[in-house]
C-alpha cells in the first residue's frame, strides 16, 4: 500500500434514529478520508462524533439506519461486508477504545485472560505463546509488573491502568486503524497525558491510523495531525491541528473563545452563539429523512 492511498474513506455517512416525533438525523452526510495519521474528531455532546466512529465499525443498535454512499477501508467496501466478515475486521483491522474501562471490561474475568482472548481470536497461537504476547503488550503500555497485573480483575486496577489495559487489548491483534472514543476523558490530566503518550508511541511505531474522538479542543489540537470539527451531526470544517487557532469558522472560534484561560481576565467569558446557517440543508433530504 502506498502512502497516497487513503486508509479509510467515508462518503455521505448518515445515521438516522426513528423516534415517535419523527426521525432524528444524528449524523448527516459526513465525508472524510484519512491515511495513516492521527485525526481528531471534536464536537459538543450530541454532535454525532461517537456515532461516526461506531457507524464505521457497524456497532450501532439494529434500529439505527446507517446510510452511506461509500465506506472503504484499505480498498475494501465495508458496506457490502456480511456480519461474519465484519467480525474479522473488528479487532483485527479496526479496533475501538471506549471511554470508560470500568464498563468495557468483563468484571468476572482477569484482565490477562481478556487480553489473551483478543489475541487468540485473531491469531493462531498456543496458550503459552499468547500469554507471552499478552505480557509483552502489557509491558508496551508501560505497566511495570505485567505478571502481577495479568491475574488482576478489572475492579482491582485504577482508572489510568484500566485504560492502558484497554489499549493493550485493542492493539494486540495489530489493527491498522484504531478508533479511540474519548479514551482519556475519565482520567486525571497528568494520567490522561501519560496514556496519550503511550498511544502516540504505539501508533507511531506500528504505522497505524488513529481516529481520536474527544470534546477537548485544546488537547486534540496539540495531539492530532488534523482535526474534524462537528456540530449537529455535520462536519463544520477540517483543519490542520496547528492552524486550529487561526480557524475562521464561527463555531470553532466560539468553542475556543469560551474556554477559561489561566492568563485571562475574570470578566465574562464569551458564550457560544449558535447559528442555524452552519447547518446546511442537505439536498435530497425531505422531512428529516436522509437519502442513502
Amino acid at each position: 500500500m502506498t502512502e497516497n492511498t487513503p486508509l479509510l474513506t467515508v462518503n455521505d455517512l448518515s445515521v438516522v434514529f426513528p423516534s415517535p416525533k419523527g426521525e432524528v438525523c444524528a449524523v448527516n452526510n459526513v465525508s472524510f478520508s484519512m491515511g495513516r495519521e492521527k485525526i481528531g474528531v471534536v464536537g459538543e455532546s450530541g454532535s454525532g462524533k461517537s456515532l461516526t466512529g461506531r457507524a464505521v465499525l457497524r456497532l450501532l443498535p439494529p434500529y439505527a439506519r446507517v446510510g452511506a454512499s461509500d465506506i472503504t477501508f484499505k480498498g475494501r467496501n465495508l458496506l457490502s461486508c456480511s456480519e461474519k466478515q465484519m467480525r474479522k475486521i473488528r479487532g483485527m483491522e479496526i479496533s475501538m477504545v471506549m471511554q470508560d474501562p470500568k464498563y468495557s471490561l468483563n468484571p468476572v474475568r482477569t484482565v490477562g485472560e481478556q487480553i489473551r482472548e483478543a489475541y487468540t481470536i485473531h491469531h493462531k497461537a498456543g496458550k503459552k505463546q499468547a500469554r507471552q504476547k499478552t505480557l509483552d503488550m502489557l509491558k508496551a503500555v508501560r505497566i511495570r509488573n505485567p505478571e502481577q497485573v495479568y491475574g488482576l480483575y478489572p475492579h482491582e486496577v485504577s482508572g489510568g491502568m484500566g485504560q492502558r489495559i484497554m489499549i493493550a487489548m485493542m492493539l494486540i491483534p495489530e489493527p491498522s486503524l484504531l478508533i479511540a472514543d474519548e479514551p482519556t476523558s475519565a482520567l486525571d490530566v497528568t494520567v490522561q497525558l501519560q496514556v496519550l503518550a503511550i498511544l502516540d508511541d504505539l501508533v507511531g511505531e506500528r504505522g497505524m491510523g488513529l481516529i481520536f474522538i474527544s470534546h477537548d479542543l485544546a488537547l486534540v489540537s496539540s495531539f492530532c495531525d488534523r482535526v474534524i470539527i462537528m456540530y449537529g451531526g455535520q462536519i463544520m470544517e477540517v483543519v490542520d491541528a496547528g492552524n486550529l487557532h487561526k480557524s475562521n469558522h464561527p463555531y470553532t472560534k466560539g468553542l475556543l473563545s469560551c474556554l477559561p484561560k489561566i492568563d485571562g481576565t475574570q470578566d465574562h467569558l464569551p458564550t457560544l452563539v449558535r447559528d442555524d446557517v452552519w447547518l446546511k440543508p442537505v439536498p435530497g433530504r425531505v422531512n428529516g429523512e436522509a437519502a442513502s
Binding site: V189, T190, Q192, L193, Q194, L196, A197, D200, A218, L219, S221, S222, F223, I262
Partner: peptide, 18 residues
C-alpha cells in the same frame, strides 16, 4: 507546576518528565 503544564495540552517532552 506539573498540573499547570498538563493543563496546557499534549507535549511529548514534558510528559516524559512527569
Amino acid at each position: 507546576t506539573q498540573l499547570l503544564v498538563a493543563g496546557k495540552g499534549y507535549d511529548r517532552t514534558a510528559i516524559d518528565q512527569f
